[in-house]
Nucleic acid binder design. Sequence first.
DNA 1: ACACTGACCTCAA
DNA 2: GTTGAGGCCAGTG
Length: 104
Amino acid sequence: MTAENDTFRQRVFQIVAAIPRGQVTTYGDIAQMAGSSRAARQVGGVLKRLPQGSRLPWHRVINRKGELSLQGEDFQRQRQALLAEDIEVDAQGRIDLNRFRWRG
DNA sequence: ACACTGACCTCAA
DNA sequence: GTTGAGGCCAGTG
């Protein structure tokens, strides 16, 4: 966590913070916006290790298939957070990207 | 510097 | 519709 290595993480923070309420985007898209188009996994890594108490809307980030990538209780929490902003998520965690995807 | 991990993605079958 | 293999590359220890 040196000064230089913070750039990717910082960009991810900034991009995720910019996702409007009621919309979602994908790990891959964030990676691309952050300037490293093939670092989709890293976006997940960054969000996984968010400091507790962060107000970043991490729940608005899903995978390319339009599904939540989390499991268990985390899955439930993300689903509730999305439903709370009127995003339609079925029991399988699927979302219609054509309707809720954020276009920057 | 090295080895390993993984909230991903693409493509092939 | 599914599954699996292979690649990707920023974190982590």
